[in-house]
Amino acid sequence: MLSVRKSEDRGLASFSWLESKHSFSFGSYYDPDNMGFSALRVINDDIVAPHAGFETHGHRNMEIISFILEGTIEHKDSEGNTKTIKAGEFQLMSAGSGIYHSEFNASSTEPLRFLQIWVEPNRINSEPRYQQENFGKNPGVTTIATPSGENQSFQIYQDASLHQLVLLPQQELTLDLDHQRSLYVHQIEGVLVVEGHKLMPGDGLKVTDQQSIKVLNNSQQTVLALVFDLP
């Protein structure tokens, strides 16, 4: 079964320094039909004004992944990590037993845009961990996070995997699935066709009870999407 949620149906949060679109219920946005999907709890598409950001705040027992689309983040946390994360990079912060951090737009002139992703862990009160990497933009499927950290991917505490999907113009792939698991696709750039369903930027696709799906880029623009393999 395939179910599309259009970008314009996402929740919205607007402040003087932040514009955010929520794929699932978050903060003051509540939608009982979109509380998350399997272990995937949050996908927020955040645009942060120059030299603004999230003041120091805490998290517990959550795998928090950031994917920087435009600009640079300045990150500081209570584990002693002081980092800059640039466009094209991924960051994983495993909050575990508790961590405090701040995230700011490093530029005083240009906006910052990034995806903030939360995955509920299957291990509680673990030691907080930090990982950061640029996995490139190779055509096809690039694995970003796995339970084992195999092939230099991030290790997350959940029976879930995150993959980056890049399709060149006119490129087509078939993704083999376990029909007992769930798949979620978040479209970022270009137009992706999945089994006849056209995904525009910001659209999400829930996939259940499928043994494979065909993904196609029949446009002249490169496609970029995230694919979550979930329990």
Rank of each mutant, 00 (worst) to 15 (best):
S153T: 15
V185W: 01
E63M: 05
S153V: 03
L173I: 07
L112C: 05
K214W: 02
Y29L: 05
V223E: 01
S94F: 09
L230I: 09
K198V: 15
F114K: 02
D31Q: 07
E89K: 06
P169S: 00
L115P: 00
F26E: 00
G140Y: 06
G202S: 01
I47V: 12
M200A: 13
E89V: 13
L40N: 03
Q132K: 07
V185L: 08
L192F: 00
K21C: 02
E8S: 12
I43G: 00
Q210H: 12
F104E: 15
I156Y: 05
G58V: 06
N122D: 11
I64M: 00
K83I: 07
N34R: 15
P50G: 04
T56P: 14
H51Y: 12
D229A: 12
S219E: 14
G196M: 06
M35H: 10
Q211L: 14
L162S: 02
L224C: 04
T84E: 11
N138P: 01
A52F: 06
G98Y: 11
R123I: 15
E189Y: 09
V193P: 02
P128D: 02
E127K: 09
V141K: 08
L115Q: 02
M1R: 13
L165Y: 03
L112E: 01
L216V: 15
G53I: 08
L115A: 00
E19A: 07
Q158E: 08
Y130L: 10
F135Q: 08
S28H: 08
G204S: 11
G58Q: 14
H186A: 04
V215M: 11
N44C: 04
H179F: 14
S38D: 10
D31T: 04
A52W: 05
E150K: 15
V227S: 05
E55S: 15
G58W: 08
V227H: 05
E127C: 04
M200R: 10
T142V: 03
L12Y: 11
I144M: 09
L205W: 00
I43M: 03
S97F: 07
V194K: 03
K206A: 14
T174F: 10
N138R: 11
I124S: 06
G149Q: 03
R123D: 15
V185C: 06
D33Q: 14
L224A: 06
A225V: 08
Q132W: 09
W118S: 02
S107I: 08
N44D: 07
E189I: 11
T174N: 10
S108W: 05
Q221F: 05
Q131V: 04
R5M: 07
